[in-house]
Nucleic acid binder design. Structure first.
Lengths: 213, 213
DNA sequence: GTCTATATCGGGATAGAC
DNA sequence: GTCTATCCCGATATAGAC
């Protein structure tokens, strides 16, 4: 029926738009290229989505929606903090690896938009897990502060610890070309590097949370 | 004299171009805005630099040239590896903090240019310290491998360790809007966070390289 | 809904006077 | 070397036929 066809076309457009926007960013993307990628013409883009801006918004929101729910869910599991952080690292890294260009895209657009996209960003995070008590960083921070009260992660401060973990997971994808150039890695070497990454970050957590005996 | 005036104008243009390119990226930047920022008109931009592309190249190269020499120099000092890494972290972080938007700019442009800028990037790094035995990551990696042969950083692999250190230094600047949004920091809170950052990364190094006694 | 044709505008680049 | 005026293309967006 017509309805199915419509929805399907909208999907095709969104897939194409996602591909182009994520690769080139809002400013670098061309509506023509999106149309070509979707196998239709420019007029259709404006028929389904009013403007480039609106199409971009949709892509931006979906890019976040793809990655965050599983991370949120992982953080809500009851566990002691050390294991929860390891779980967070594993799930977060997996999600990023499945969508490797999303982080740089999001960070670049957040930067240029000067906080107008930041609201969209936070809103999207809240919708990731509807009835969660807060954003995943807040949940982890609260538990880390409780652990800190028990003297657990030594002199490591909760906010720095969390930022470091995110950094270690995300940075390889954000900085891939630079890392490869600086450290002389080719594609294959970099993939092997990624294969080892989670266990190396877990090592970091082991040293921050030494097993008491 | 005329010569001074020329050089001065070229400088003014470069400063303006730097400001605009770093904020908006190559694709988002407008020659008109650069001209306004420099207090001249568009024609002058093309007179001094042939094209937007050439102007961009110059800005890109200078952005790297501003940051890297001190890092390179720091890494060449003779020290035991642990102290050298701490020095690296301190100097690298200081450099990035002095030019906080450079990393995201460089990473975004490296990504979109698909390795054509990577050559410029590597070339610029080599020129940072003319007679150095190699790029700073290679120097650190070599020493880390030697340390690894002595069993020093435990199970931490040299390449992962180095990437983690760079990540911990750079990520706060690359992800600033995201971090502020997710963790509920305002400008002042984030600056305090940055003030603590180096010492928190050093803590990480202390746990990776425990003092033998 | 989908296409072709076109309006409209903005941006990079150049010509030419001074 | 610096300006004004202009060229010309490309990009978003819309009109209108089918």
């Amino acid at each position: 029926m017509a309805n199915t066809r419509d929805a399907d076309t909208a999907r095709r457009i969104l897939e194409a738009a996602r591909k182009v926007f994520l690769e080139k960013g809002m400013a670098g993307a061309r509506m023509q290229e999106i149309a070509d990628e979707a196998g239709i013409n420019k007029a259709m883009l404006h028929y389904y989505f009013r403007s480039k801006e609106q199409l971009f918004r949709q892509v931006f929101e979906e890019a976040l929606a793809d990655m965050m729910p599983k991370v949120h869910a992982a953080v809500l599991q009851p566990m002691r903090i050390k294991d929860k952080l390891k779980t967070f690292v594993r799930v977060y890294f997996e999600q990023v690896r499945a969508h490797p260009v999303v982080p740089l895209f999001v960070l670049h657009e957040l930067h240029r938009s000067g906080a107008s996209l930041a609201e969209v960003f936070v809103e999207q995070m809240k919708q990731a897990v509807p009835r969660a008590p807060g954003l995943f960083p807040q949940i982890l921070l609260d538990e880390l502060r409780a652990a800190a009260a028990r003297g657990e992660p030594g002199a490591h401060k909760p906010d720095h610890l969390l930022v470091s973990l995110m950094a270690m997971c995300v940075f390889p994808f954000v900085a891939r070309p630079m890392i490869c150039a600086l450290m002389g890695m080719d594609e294959a070497a970099f993939e092997r590097f990624l294969d080892e990454r989670v266990s190396q970050v877990e090592l970091f957590l082991d040293s921050v949370f030494p097993e008491e005996r």
